[in-house]
Simulated assay, not measured.
Amino acid sequence: MKSLALTFFILPSLLFYPQDDMKKKAFYALINSLISHSVTEVKADEIKKTDVVWLDARAQEEYDISRIAGAQFVGYDDFKIKSIKDIDKDAEIIVYCSIGYRSEKVAEKLERAGYTNVKNLYGGIFDWYNSGQPVVDSLGNTTKKVHGYGRTWGVWLNDAETVY
């Protein structure tokens, strides 16, 4: 069913939009087919505050390549609420992963645990990077390297040094 829905969203975009816009629309159609929109979402270009708590819900090897500056690794497969027990339950928290699926699941757990201001970064670090926002390496230096999660997913990164 999802592949049928993708066909109806992606094929028309291939016909009627300029190449960059077409790829972005196809990427968003893919995301929308995978996430449930169960938590508040925020896009990279909507974030204006700097005092946000960033939580990275990717695998350790992804986080080690690059991350959003100041992000705390929490993972996905082994995420435990106790790993963030020092974060105020009313703090603004933005959770991200590659495209937003894993981070949505972690954000749901945070809300169930009583965190009141949790958001999922729509499009994840891929859309963050593609929107011209910086990512940093493990030393805090700006980098063009982004973990592609897998070869079929890395195609959604623009002008990055995709690492697998």
Score class of each variant (00 low, 15 high):
Ser3Arg: 05
Phe9Cys: 13
Leu11Ala: 04
Ser13Trp: 01
Phe16Ile: 03
Asp20Trp: 05
Met22Tyr: 12
Lys24His: 15
Leu30Val: 06
Leu30Arg: 08
Ser33Lys: 01
Leu34Trp: 12
Ser36Tyr: 03
Ser36Lys: 12
His37Pro: 13
Ser38Met: 02
Thr40Glu: 15
Lys43Trp: 14
Asp45Gly: 15
Glu46Asn: 13
Lys49Ile: 08
Thr50Leu: 12
Val52Ser: 13
Val53Ser: 13
Asp56Arg: 04
Ala57Tyr: 00
Arg58Glu: 09
Glu61Gln: 14
Tyr63Gly: 06
Ser66Gly: 00
Gly70Lys: 12
Tyr76Thr: 00
Lys80Trp: 04
Lys82Leu: 04
Ile84Ser: 08
Lys85Gln: 08
Lys85Met: 09
Lys89Gly: 08
Ala91Asn: 01
Ile93Gly: 04
Ile93Arg: 15
Tyr96Met: 09
Ile99Ser: 15
Lys105Asp: 05
Glu108Phe: 03
Leu110Val: 09
Leu110Ile: 02
Glu111Met: 06
Asn117Ser: 11
Lys119Leu: 13
Trp128Cys: 02
Asn130Cys: 14
Ser131Lys: 07
Gly132Glu: 00
Val135Phe: 03
Ser138Tyr: 08
Gly140Cys: 04
Gly140Tyr: 01
Gly140Ser: 11
Asn141Lys: 09
Val146Phe: 00
Tyr149Pro: 05
Trp153Asp: 07
Val155Leu: 11
Leu157Tyr: 06
Asn158Arg: 15
Thr162Ala: 14
Val163Cys: 13
Tyr164Ser: 14
